[in-house]
């Protein structure tokens, strides 16, 4: 196991190298740079090429791309992600203000998605081709097919606007409602009402995949010999399904959950924009628009690392869930 882990972790290094190299290169291909975004605010400034050059020189943007890349890697390895050109703040500070908001929203979303889709998938499988199965399948596909920005707008105009001020159209919390001034109950209620709509959009859009996976995996398991044996022994149907079948059916679900960790912090550009949720997706989107190279790279790296760790954890979890699997 230890050898296997070492090997896996070492394998990540060249992979990360390739990912960052590609991101860095693609970013440089986009026309315009951060100095252009900052200076074009004033007509006079743009007509003075010397100023543009001075900023590029100061920020080292005139160096060859590979030099810039290795400089970035060198600093990154020492824990320095550089400064945001646009906000003129350390990248860490920009990300640190957005990260908790994204995690908070996505944590609840993921819990709900798993809590809803696994039972739904099981029910669909057990009652294959029943009315319940049809409804679940149809809802799941609708969630997948409806674009999230559309669902979000629908909820804002249909629910928030008609809620008599109960559900806000945007934001994350009511300013002033804090633990100090109000009780924890009002704080909780306040945060919940802001999270309500974005949560619905994310959960609705995220149900499909898992429900379908769970359904087909369960269907497969239900045809296995050991399930027939369990039934033949005269075990109650509940025990057959929830004790014998479910444990085996969950395995494939684990396999598709490797991206979980990165989606927890990845954030969604669309949902965070539509609901004015101050998260990491919005930061990343702005960084790309502003050619804020250092911020873009940090977000990219973060999600790459978390994806890799996520899949590593999945592989480790296999051992725990399925005793037959061993890594040597």
């Amino acid at each position: 196991m230890a050898r296997y882990l070492t090997k896996r972790i070492l394998n990540m290094i060249p992979l990360l190298f390739i990912v960052t190299l590609l991101s860095f290169g693609i970013m440089q291909l986009a026309p315009g740079g951060p100095e252009y975004v900052i200076l074009s605010a004033e007509a006079d400034a743009m007509s003075d090429p010397q100023q543009v050059e001075a900023l590029r020189e100061k920020w080292g943007l005139n160096d060859p791309v590979h030099i810039q890349y290795f400089r970035w890697v060198g600093n990154m390895l020492q824990g320095d992600f550089g400064k945001s050109y646009y906000y003129r703040l350390p990248v860490k500070e920009v990300l640190a203000s957005a990260l908790p908001n994204t995690i908070r929203l996505n944590f609840f979303a993921l819990v709900l998605i798993y809590a809803i889709s696994i039972p739904l998938g099981v029910i669909s499988a057990v009652r294959q081709y029943s009315k319940t199965d049809m409804i679940v399948t149809a809802t799941a596909f609708a969630g997948q097919a409806a674009p999230s920005f559309w669902v979000a707008s629908l909820l804002i105009w249909g629910v928030a606007m008609n809620s008599g001020g109960l559900i806000p159209t945007n934001g994350i919390s009511t300013p002033g409602i804090t633990f100090e001034t109000y009780g924890w109950l009002s704080v909780l209620a306040d945060r919940a009402k802001y999270m309500f709509l974005p949560l619905i959009v994310i959960v609705f859009g995220g149900l499909t995949g898992l429900t379908r996976y769970m359904r087909s995996s369960m269907l497969e398991v239900l045809r296995e010999d050991y399930v027939r044996t369990a039934r033949a022994k005269g075990l109650a149907e509940k025990v057959v399904i929830y004790k014998h079948a479910l444990r085996n059916a969950v395995l494939p679900i684990l396999a598709v959950s490797g991206g979980l960790l990165s989606s927890l912090v990845g954030g969604s550009v669309i949902i965070e924009n539509v609901f004015s949720w101050p998260g990491i997706g919005r930061v990343a989107w702005q960084a790309v628009n502003n050619r804020d190279y250092n911020v873009s790279m940090a977000v990219m790296l973060l999600s790459a690392v978390l994806t890799m760790i996520g899949y590593l954890l999945v592989d480790i979890a296999y051992v725990w869930v399925d005793p037959r699997i061993k890594y040597d």
Binding site: I156, A160, P168, T169, N170, V274
Partner: peptide, 20 residues
């Protein structure tokens, strides 16, 4: 004066119509 960061035009429009 409270200035809220609202990136989306449609959301801002809803907020205007909603009195926010």
């Amino acid at each position: 004066i409270r200035m809220k960061v609202i990136p989306d035009d449609q959301t801002a429009l809803a907020a205007l119509e909603n009195g926010e």
